[in-house]
Simulated assay, not measured.
Amino acid sequence: MAASTLFQLALMGLFVASIPLTMVWLSADANKYRKLVWVMAFLTFDLIVFGAFTRLTDSGLGCPDWPGCYGAANPFIAHEQIAAAEAAMPTGPVTQVKAWIEMIHRYLAMGIGVLIMALMFQAIRQWRKTHQKAFAPAMPIALFVFVCIQGAFGAWTVTLKLQPVIVTIHLLLGMLLLAMLVWLGEHENRLLTPLAPSRAPASLRGLRTLALLAAVVLVVQIALGGWVSTNYATLACDEFPLCDGQLVPQMDFEHGFTLWRELGMTAAGDYLQFPALVAIHWVHRNFAILVTLVLGWAAWRAWQEPALRRTGRLLALALLAQLFTGVATVFFDFPLAIAVLHNAGAAVLVVLVTMLNYKVKTLLEVSQRRPANADALANSYR
């Protein structure tokens, strides 16, 4: 790819990043570092949702090379090549609309990469000057490394022609990047407004274990959901709660869950048969029962703790909405808007489960220190 094209793409990334950076700089919030973290978390959420839209509209190969589009910085310049590909295969992966969808997704990703670099440089600079906890550079540096890995998987998504395992990992890394930003944002929040100790610290230990379990099962379910989406198995079961009229339909787990293979193919190079798609869909659908039980229990337990009540309530509502969109996707034959909402719901659950884990961890630490402080105060009056 020409150096001029790379330069134009870099300028586009800077332009996209300059808009939220300017908004943060001009905001009335005195803590602009914290503001930037939460703006980045919001944009990463948006990128995940737009990535789902890109995948669900079959636009992942709208530009079949990387990082540009037919070697150009935008589809305007590559209009001739795109038009030729579209004329040769009108319903194929390359069209003018799909090219723009794919490139907008890339521009947003580049902008977030620039924002993470800005956050890292600011954290390092402020840490050297002040050594304040708010600017500890470990997490911003980890975010930078992580976004570079995510960028590599974004490139492989295209160069390996939407290989399901690569696309699924790309989705998981996006969710984990969102979780890291939310964790950092919660850290900044707690430095500004610390949590008051709980009156029942013993119950928090069980809730912390439950919150960690909720995070684990949610990651597994998102991986399964990504596997459904990347293998185009969403409508392999077109009714609910049965699948093809049966509780346990005919399934091919061996080929359905072979990880390293091309899209629509088995590892041996044969076409993937329908029972394999049924197995993929059926596992995701039934694992959702376990996810509902674990996250529902975690939400109920959090609801009992005053400092966590709002998070627990939001988690319960998000879980119900996610169940509704999941079932509606099947009932309404996979409408695009509901499918995108279902992917957005998964990102919302990631945000809330991350918040719950951070708050429980912090609340437990604060509450465990309370008895020692109280005993010391009581002894001083004896």
Rank of each mutant, 00 (worst) to 15 (best):
M1L: 10
T5A: 09
A10D: 02
A10P: 00
L11F: 00
L11A: 10
M12K: 02
A17P: 05
S18V: 03
V24R: 03
W25L: 11
W25S: 11
Y33S: 08
F42M: 12
A52Y: 07
T54A: 01
T54S: 02
D58G: 05
G62C: 03
C63S: 04
D65E: 08
Y70K: 05
A72L: 02
P75G: 04
H79A: 14
E86C: 01
A88M: 07
T95V: 03
R106W: 02
Y107M: 05
M110I: 00
I112C: 00
Q122L: 13
T130W: 06
H131W: 07
A138R: 13
A138P: 11
P140Q: 04
A142W: 04
C148I: 14
C148E: 07
Q150W: 00
A155T: 04
T157N: 03
V165L: 09
I166L: 02
H170S: 04
L173W: 02
M180R: 07
E186D: 08
R190C: 00
L191Q: 09
A196F: 03
R208E: 08
T209M: 09
V220H: 02
Q221Y: 01
A223Q: 01
L224Q: 04
V228P: 02
S229W: 03
T230D: 14
Y232H: 11
Y232E: 12
T234N: 10
L235R: 08
A236V: 09
L242K: 14
Q250T: 15
Q250P: 01
M251N: 07
E254V: 15
H255C: 03
G256Y: 08
L259C: 06
E262H: 15
G264A: 08
G264D: 10
M265K: 15
T266A: 11
A267G: 12
L272F: 13
L272G: 11
F274N: 14
L277Q: 14
V278I: 15
A279D: 11
W282T: 11
V283E: 10
F287P: 11
A288S: 15
L290V: 15
V294D: 05
G296T: 13
W297M: 14
W300R: 14
W300K: 14
A302F: 09
W303K: 15
E305L: 01
G312A: 10
R313P: 01
R313N: 06
A318G: 07
A318N: 06
L319R: 06
A321N: 08
Q322M: 08
F324W: 14
A328H: 02
N343R: 03
A347T: 06
A347V: 06
V348N: 01
V348G: 00
L349P: 01
V351L: 09
M355K: 13
Y358N: 09
V360Y: 04
E365H: 13
P371E: 03
A372C: 02
A372T: 13
N373F: 13
A374Y: 08
D375A: 15
L377V: 13
S380M: 13
